[in-house]
Design a protein around this nucleic acid. Structure first.
Lengths: 194, 194
DNA sequence: CGCGACGTTGATTTGCCTCAACGATTGTGG
DNA sequence: CCACAATCGTTGAGGCAAATCAACGTCGCG
């Protein structure tokens, strides 16, 4: 129970709960231990859950008609991840979710997410604020894609997310930045020569 | 009072309020009537407000070092707009907000937004759901910028937002799509020839 | 009417892609 | 623990979509 309580203090950092509340929340969370290469969700499936990443590394990616992968998001410790276009509207996934490093996750369904907000309104506030931060980050990413070159985006990426850069393959980073592995390789070369 | 009440039924469509609640909400909203060309917010200013667009058209744009403008968002009837990177963290704006068609807006401060959520929790739920939709849209825009050509993005834009396409200048659309006005002109020419 | 803002067209350049080949690294079974 | 294959990253040559630079119509408004 104490051990289990500690995961809530990770997920909902800074909040405290009554024993009753903690039990209620825990009853909605399911722990998953997954290996590298596992798939959490496939394009076309109904999106029922979102996932809290306790450790490891996960990504969501979109596959276009020509078979190219485009990484939308990486998630490491303390991030939430899902196909949110599907999750929020309870429709089919347009993306895939893939474990790229052995991971411990906690999953919760859309219905239970809403139930928690209803029962414990300050969870809704907590979640809203998390989402505000994520919303701002995605807006900044759009601005970066409009205003900066591939090289600048790469430099910015390794500055913002050094812990991710160390853990993922270069082709994952390339597909996140919107360039090919060859281009990324050439950019990396230029940077070492400077 | 009845007239004023109707703006709440626009902003918070589908919700109903007690007389007391309605007065409280209205006390936090300030109506603005602005002319085309007006600037609501400038890069560097502290972001204190967000704006509900009742009518007219507004955009947020980022200006890069070389002076080029990059449109992040258009807002027409029933959209909210602000520099959300600044609004959510109460810091300085990185973008500008410009009226591009005579507009009627209702502005509310960050502090009052939070006060409303606190006093009337179902407003927080309402706002969260609006934001979930916007969040999903921005994610899809990132995927589109990663996976599709300028021409495809333009076709998709006029399909998704015909009411915006009619109201804004071509150079606004170009700066939203991440291309030059010349390229957009050539794309439009190609499309009429098909 | 005349001027400025907007859109179009052409010539050239460029950043990144594609295709192809080849090193380097990692993981795995013998 | 090594051998070898698969995966991953790098390099080069050539191509293409969109940018840049420049010039010129066209439209709306004072």
């Amino acid at each position: 129970m104490n051990i289990e309580k500690s995961i809530l203090s990770e997920i909902y950092k800074g909040m405290s709960f009554s024993c009753e509340e903690a039990l209620f929340i825990e009853s909605k969370l399911e722990k998953l231990e997954l290996k590298k290469g596992a798939t959490l969700l496939k394009n076309g499936e109904t999106v029922l859950h979102q996932y809290y990443v306790y450790n490891g590394c996960v990504r969501t990616y979109f596959m276009d008609r020509s078979g190219k992968e485009h990484t939308l998001q990486f998630a490491v410790n303390d991030w939430w991840i899902s196909d949110y276009t599907g999750f929020f509207s309870s429709t089919k996934a347009i993306m895939n979710i893939e474990i790229i490093q052995d991971a411990t996750l906690y999953k919760i369904s859309r219905k239970d997410t809403e139930a928690l907000f209803c029962e414990i309104p300050r969870l809704e506030t907590f979640f809203r604020k998390k989402m505000e931060g994520a919303f701002a980050s995605f807006q900044q990413r759009i601005l970066a894609s409009l205003a900066t070159s591939a090289k600048e985006r790469y430099v910015s990426f390794i500055g913002l997310y050094p812990q991710i850069e160390q853990r993922v393959k270069n082709y994952h980073i390339a597909s996140y930045l919107g360039i090919t592995t060859e281009s990324l390789s050439r950019i990396r070369k230029e940077l070492t020569q400077e």
